[in-house]
Write a protein that binds this DNA or RNA. Structure first.
Lengths: 219, 219
DNA sequence: GGGAATATTCCC
DNA sequence: GGGAATATTCCC
């Protein structure tokens, strides 16, 4: 339990003391009326408050959350949820209210909290990105290795092809050789010779390579 | 040009008026001394200031940046860069100083603004990174497809090669066979020779493939 | 009625 | 000496 603020305590005391006619509780004790502001200012304020201006008191009451109602000319009635006759134990609840400008500061603080959250999220996203990046780099390295391997093998194939083409030429030469042999065999029965030649003709492998070189981007 | 604050103006007036003995300028006019604080409080404060406590005045002067020096018991000397006898035009420069706690708040605000800026930038950078990463992933996918395609084609080539090599071996063998046959059959009757040659048609070549299939990761 | 500057008091 | 709560004044 806090203590009631001085202002509130003084106000309550003034109202209770019944020494003053210029201020009084309403009948139900849930509000008070400053009946004679001028008198109040003259006789009470110098004793109980710092200020000599009753307007200052109004301002104070306002900042403590009192509701003000204007009655007859110059008479004001003030009421506050926790400022009730006989209810001393709730007086401490009558507190200054935060001004909007201060509430604004609170909002700023909230926005810092939010920003911290966002920052945390950003960091996490960044970490995700970084690890993704790492795995991408690994993938690229793998692809690079595979490509090197592919290129080597293509080279092998091409060499093989080349060698083979050379051999094939030799082969052709052999055929020519054979043919000329048959020339030599002139005088032999023609059927026999032609049979041999026919045989040789079929022995030749596929003549046109079915291999057409593809275009590889990485060579 | 601003106007001097009431407190400063009053203080200067009091000092200039020479009506009061309890406060006076120093000889060089760059400071003033409250010679008799009690007298000052009693006779001057009620008229010129809100407060009746001289300590409040000290507090005020402090918050306006006056330097205080204690002289003899109870005597205080105050000085301020811009509070100089005869120099009325600089009085307006004597201003309340922001309390450290408020300056601190200002710093906080500044740092929030900076943080917001940084946050915004970070977000943008992150987005750039993410979109770049996405396009990199797409590229990798394309490369992967190309590699698969390449590998498939190499396989085709290898199969072809294999098939071809088998045939070739048969061929080569036949040629060697023939050649040696002709050597052997020299002088034999041609009918016999041709019969033997017809037999050779059925001879299967060697079965072992000279080609060892490559291992491709994407097959 | 209430924001904001200034003043006062309280307190370490 | 100065931070911080409270009060007062000024002003829209």
């Amino acid at each position: 339990m806090g203590k009631p603020k001085i202002l509130i305590k003084n106000l309550y005391e003034i109202l209770q003391s019944e020494k003053f006619d210029c201020i009084r509780w309403t009948d139900n004790g849930r509000a008070f009326i400053i009946v004679d502001p001028e008198e109040f200012q003259k006789s009470i304020m110098p004793e109980y408050f710092y200020s000599t201006q009753i307007k200052s008191l109004y301002r104070q009451l306002n900042s403590y959350g009192f509701k003000m109602r204007s009655l007859e000319i110059n008479q004001k009635m003030f009421s506050h949820k926790w400022f009730i006759q006989g209810n001393i134990s709730s007086l401490y609840k009558v507190e200054r209210q935060r001004t909007k400008s201060i509430a604004h500061l609170d909002k700023e603080k909230d926005s810092i909290v939010i920003m911290r959250e966002e920052m945390k999220q950003l960091k996490e996203e960044l970490e995700t990105l970084q690890s993704q990046q790492n795995s991408i780099l690994k993938q690229i390295r793998i692809h690079s290795i595979i490509q090197t391997y592919i290129c080597k093998n293509i080279k092998k194939i091409c060499d093989e092809q080349k060698k083979f083409n050379l051999e094939r030429e030799q082969e052709t030469r052999l055929v020519i050789y054979f043919t000329s042999m048959f020339e030599i065999f002139k005088g032999f029965q023609f059927e026999i010779a032609s049979n041999i030649i026919l045989q040789l003709k079929d022995i030749g492998g596929p003549q046109t390579p079915s291999f057409s070189p593809m275009i590889f981007p990485y060579m």
